[in-house]
Design a protein around this nucleic acid. Structure first.
Length: 702
DNA sequence: GCAAGGTC
């Protein structure tokens, strides 16, 4: 009678099998699902992976009207076409579990892992499996800990975590599905047009953050200020010093300060200060996403996908980690020696291997399941450009964390000119340390300054009075909003990038420097008034409190679910009463957004060029002044989504657009078919490939 | 179809 051991995912199954089975492990495969047969303490066991969640919540009856609270677990592949892969896992598990006498749940020991284990046992392993099952508790997938965890199996499932997890799923479904339906149906009734509108515990507060920034920018009134710069000459070199008052808010004050300056400046003091810059911390997914955006402009979602490719190719460790730790058990030397076998890393790896001790800088964050992202040392074969870039960044980062601190010298010089004080500052790197290991990704911020000594007299060439204006706060970009979400505890490392993507696809936001559309503003406005709970970050926090209470046995999950239901019934009843009014407002915003999406840029007559759909399903760009006689048109590609870039072609002056076809890489082009920029297009790929625009960013569909 | 959460 065999023991059935369920794991969270294939990579975990492989590690758990070899830790428990030693030399007895035989690998099998069923419909592409790997599994392992082995002997543990003289008994036969089969180790089988899940693929994350195999089940999802679905309404039991057709959803004709909201609110809906009757949900059940169904296989994911039945509810979502994109989850088709999970079918093979589900079937493999069902077959391999048959005839087992004991069950062990060895998924991650967290809330979601516990739900994965429970659903699989409950729906695939037959009567009694849930009650019989034991739980393996481990926090790292190392052989020693896994064996120890197996020797000390918990005698039952961790039902407290299971219940907390089920409640989380149900609550998210209740809130998200019902409010989304309320929004969509109000729009549909008012405008007759159907659009997928959505709201959720994570996406709506995220959208709210973006709308707040949008309002700040739209309402920003620039305030003028004046700056004073002193241009002096030292050893034939021109130096620009800044007045100690960074900004004068009154022009007159700045002018008086300027007039008080003499023709000579005197060095009043020189201060040299050295400080150490520690190496960077290892990459967790969020840090990698931020850095890849800084270095290459890749969006968080893109980085996540590229990292996943590198992981599947065996080149890097598991990327969806929250850890900034590098445990010694990884074998630093082994990895460095392998990296040293690659030409581009030979020198850097060699310099580290020459050190007596290898101690990585580490960050605060930990992850129960995985260490930080690091190269395995495997040599890549042919990598495409973006994969190559990301791989190089990950290797360079790994090397850099073992480096010595860099020493940077800051030089501050105070100049007196008349009775006014100016400052010069310089910076130079004294010891490069880890900066060299990090290579082209290190920001070497040198500001050279010639040697100056106290009392030295400098000729003043010019006192420059400049007018400036205060700037609105910057727009978020995909990397910075994902970082903001993480800081506020919204979403998880695995979901943030795709939730942001969702906001683009709904037409709520657009662009790489994120702007919120009228539709996005309208949705937040409507919800703020009629369902403020879902706009607030507090909803996530309250879910967490409820889950804690369930885990500690202070409350039953049924009570939590019932409370949410009562609350939502009241909210949705009121929403429905004012449905017509809400729908009117949303419809207006929706129309504006659609029109903006179709608008590609200016026509040479001064009108607007727009995507026009023809009756036979084709499309072209035409001018809004058609009625007034403008007959300008341009052809458009017949498939794919089209996005205005808000710029014109430097060669022909027509608007630039981005075209994205399913499965293809997005590319840019101008509207003029005869433009010289398109020379050779028939033979080659388009000249400038788009690499870094948020996928799906606010697009017009024909 | 609408969420958020796992996974490849």
């Amino acid at each position: 009678m065999k023991i059935f051991i369920l794991c969270e995912k294939p990579s975990a199954a492989s590690k758990i099998a070899s830790a428990l089975g030693g030399g007895s492990v035989r690998k099998g495969e069923r419909k592409g699902v790997p599994y392992y047969v082995l002997e543990v303490d003289g008994r036969e066991a089969v180790v089988v992976p899940s693929l994350g969640h195999l089940f999802t919540l679905k309404n039991t009856k057709p959803l004709r009207d909201y609110p809906v609270f009757d949900v059940e677990w169904v296989p994911s592949y039945l509810a979502d076409r994109k989850a088709a892969r999970t079918r093979a896992f589900l079937e493999a598990i069902r077959e391999l579990a048959r005839g087992s006498s004991e069950y062990v749940v060895a998924t991650d020991f967290d809330v979601e892992g516990s739900v994965i284990g429970w659903t699989v046992l409950r729906f695939l392993c037959g009567e009694g499996a849930v009650e019989k099952a034991k739980r393996m508790k481990f926090s790292t997938l190392t052989a020693g800990e896994l064996r120890e965890a197996y020797r000390n199996l918990l005698p039952r499932l961790d039902f407290e975590q299971v219940d907390a997890g089920i409640a989380r799923h149900v609550l998210d479904w209740y809130w998200g599905m019902n409010v989304s339906r309320a929004l969509s149906s109000s729009l549909q009734k008012a405008a007759g047009s159907f659009a997928k509108l959505s709201a959720g515990r994570v996406q709506t507060p995220t959208l709210k953050i973006l709308t707040e920034r949008e309002k700040e920018i739209r309402g920003f009134v620039p305030r003028p200020f004046w700056t004073l710069k002193l241009v002096v000459e030292a050893d034939g070199e021109e130096l620009v010093a800044e007045h100690e008052v960074e900004r004068f808010w009154e022009e007159g004050e700045a002018r008086r300060a300027k007039e008080a300056c003499g023709e000579e400046a005197v060095v009043r003091g020189v201060e040299v200060r050295q400080h150490r810059r520690l190496p960077p911390v290892p990459f967790d997914l969020g840090t990698l996403q931020a850095e890849a955006y800084r270095c290459f402009g890749y969006t968080p979602l893109r980085t996540q996908q590229l990292a996943q490719d590198l992981y599947l190719a065996g080149l890097i460790s598991y990327p969806r980690t929250g850890s900034q730790k590098l445990p010694p058990a990884l074998g630093y030397r082994g990895i460095l020696e392998k990296l040293g076998g690659m030409r581009e890393y030979r020198e850097a790896a060699g310099s580290l291997l020459a050190k007596r001790e290898l101690r990585p800088r580490e960050g605060e964050k930990t992850d129960p399941a995985h260490p930080s992202i690091h190269p395995t040392g495997e040599k890549p074969g042919e990598l495409k450009g973006p994969q190559r870039n990301l791989f190089d960044l990950i290797v360079r980062r790994f090397l850099a964390v073992f480096g010595d601190p860099a020493v940077v010298e800051g030089i501050g010089v105070e100049l007196a000119c008349g009775d006014q004080t100016f400052r010069l500052s310089g910076r130079r790197v004294v010891e490069r340390g880890w900066l060299d290991l990090y290579g082209r990704y290190a920001e070497a911020e040198e500001v050279p300054l010639p040697p100056l000594r106290e009392g030295q007299r400098l000729r003043v060439k010019e006192v420059r009075l400049e007018r400036g204006e205060t700037q609105p706060p910057p727009r978020y970009n995909p990397a910075s909003i994902v970082r903001e979400m993480a800081e506020r505890g919204l979403g998880t490392k695995a979901t943030r990038a795709s939730i942001l993507q969702n906001l683009y696809e709904r037409g709520y936001i657009r662009g790489e420097r994120i702007t919120v559309t009228e539709l996005g503003m309208g949705v937040v406005e409507a919800l703020q008034e009629h369902c403020p709970e879902i706009v607030s970050e507090e909803l996530t926090a309250s879910f967490e409190r409820e889950m804690d209470a369930i885990q500690e046995g202070r409350v039953r999950k049924e009570e939590v679910m019932e409370k949410a239901r009562v609350k939502l019934e009241e909210i949705l009843r009121k929403f429905k009463e004012r449905e017509a009014e809400i729908g009117e407002r949303l419809a207006e915003m929706y129309r504006k957004t659609r029109l903006a999406q179709r608008t590609l840029g200016k026509c040479r007559c001064g009108g607007e060029l727009r995507v026009i759909a023809t009756r036979n399903g084709k499309r072209f760009a035409g001018c809004s002044n058609f009625e007034r006689g403008c007959r300008v048109t341009y052809p458009l590609p017949s498939s794919g989504t089209i996005l205005a870039l808000g710029r014109t072609c430097p060669q022909c002056g027509t608007p630039l657009i981005q075209v994205r076809r399913p499965g293809g890489r997005p590319y840019r082009m101008c509207l003029e078919p005869g433009c010289p920029s398109k020379e050779g297009w028939r033979k080659k790929e388009p000249a400038s490939r788009q690499e870094n625009t948020p996928e799906g960013g606010g697009q017009a569909r024909s």
